[in-house]
Design a binder for these strands. Structure first.
Length: 396
DNA sequence: TCTGGGGTCCTAGGACCC
DNA sequence: TCTGGGGTCCTAGGACCC
């Protein structure tokens, strides 16, 4: 039986599993991570109907004996790093998809590590032994199919789709399994009596395009026929960074909103600087009292990671919405920065230095991290920026 | 019924340039 | 005075994913 060479590895109930790993008293019991909303549910809780993104009260009605724990993002970030280390020890070709899943290309490893299915089995053992977390792995010829396979494999945790059996496996699945079919698209498809992936495959591409638009139509047609030529890619970088915060229905004073905005901008720009990124499009996102959302954005002439520069823009964007906020209420505020650029230079400096000694430390840090060429560039950019908003203070 | 906090990609109109 | 077609960027909104 021929095997594909793409692995999709997906941690099981990730946040909840980390909690059960770290607190033995939670093992074997229904665990909900989150508060107002379920961020993750252990298998014991899922068995009772609790789902991710469900409201907290509804979840507790379904599963009154659930143990609710607050999220510990730092612990999950560290666990994710540990798991990705195991991935990288398995193969250099790792493409991370999110905090808890990745594609691994293992096609070149047959001679040293064996067949993809045995690499997959070993990976599950390694992750459990080294990090203490359960993980599911799908093996197939394409990324998409591997992802479907890992999802279908749960809870056993390993599923190999043989090359000869691809379409048979795929066509029996419900359309909701297709990557990119959510609530809205699934509604449209079901209205047209398209229920399985096989039904999609039986359609003409033009019909799908007519029903769903160009991009979705082409995309779903390709997936339904298992055409997915994308290789596993290493080193793709994020295109935007953001932070958001849900707030109660209010009322909220302007000062309160401004403080929230400032906190978010500070968080995002700090993360950008420590990641060595700058960006030029500032977007603020608002969720009104009725939970509808709206965004507004502004693009700067130059990319930046400077707190005050971003804050100024964010404040202007927010103030252009004060009328609507007064009328409709506000339940969430978010800031994100897009069009991220790659140059590492301007970035690494902690741009809120206050003294010459702090600046010297900052400059040393940049030189150590990125070299002296990057340092010169950082200073240049800092000077250029100084005309509008100080990116770098002058040397005393 | 109630509602985190990250992200990606697509569409569509208007401005602007050649 | 009247007039093409194409390309890129910006902005707003929406669907989807984990």
């Amino acid at each position: 039986m021929a095997e594909g060479t793409v692995l999709h590895a997906d941690l099981d109930a990730f946040f909840a599993s980390v909690e059960q790993r770290d607190d033995p008293s939670l093992r074997g019991r229904p665990v909900i991570v989150g508060g107002g909303v379920v961020l993750a549910a252990s298998y014991e809780a899922k068995a009772r109907g609790v789902r991710t993104a469900m409201g907290g009260r509804q979840a507790l009605r379904m599963c009154p004996d659930a143990i609710v724990v607050p999220p510990r993002m730092d612990a999950y970030t560290q666990a994710s790093r540990d798991v990705f280390e195991v991935f990288h020890d398995t193969t250099p070709l790792v493409e991370g998809l999110s905090i808890d899943e990745a594609f691994l290309e293992v096609g070149g490893l047959r001679l040293i590590r064996g067949a993809p299915s045995s690499i997959a089995a070993q990976l599950r053992v390694d992750v459990m032994q080294r990090v203490g977390l359960p993980i599911s792995v799908g093996v197939a010829r394409t990324k998409y199919l591997a992802k479907v396979a890992s999802a279908v494999s749960k809870p056993e945790g390993l599923l190999v789709v043989p090359v000869e059996g691809e379409l048979e496996f795929l066509h029996g699945l419900p359309v909701e399994r297709l990557w990119g079919v959510g609530k809205v698209t699934s509604g449209k498809l079901r209205e047209a009596r398209i229920v399985t992936v096989g039904d999609v495959a039986a359609m003409y591409e033009v019909e799908l395009v007519q029903l769903l638009g160009a991009a979705s139509g082409h995309h779903l047609h390709a997936l339904a026929h298992n055409r997915d030529p994308r290789p596993v890619q290493v080193g793709t970088r994020r295109g935007s960074m953001g932070a958001q915060h849900a707030i109660g229905r209010g009322p909220h004073s302007p000062a309160e909103l401004d403080l929230a905005l400032l906190t978010l901008v500070d968080r995002v720009t700090r993360r950008m600087r420590s990641a060595g990124r700058t960006g030029s499009t500032v977007t603020i996102s608002i969720r009104f009292g009725d939970f509808t959302r709206s965004t507004s954005s502004h693009t700067l002439p130059r990319p930046t990671a400077h707190t005050v520069t971003v804050l100024d823009v964010a404040r202007q964007l927010l103030s252009s919405r004060t009328g609507a906020i007064k009328e409709r209420g506000i339940t969430l505020i978010g800031v994100s920065i897009g069009s991220l650029d790659d140059s590492p230079a301007q970035l690494a400096l902690p741009l809120d230095v206050n003294s010459g000694a702090e600046l010297d430390d900052a400059i040393d840090a940049v030189r150590d991290k990125f070299g002296s060429r990057a340092l010169r560039r950082a200073v240049q950019v800092g000077k250029a920026d100084h005309t509008e908003a100080p990116l770098l203070p002058d040397r005393p």
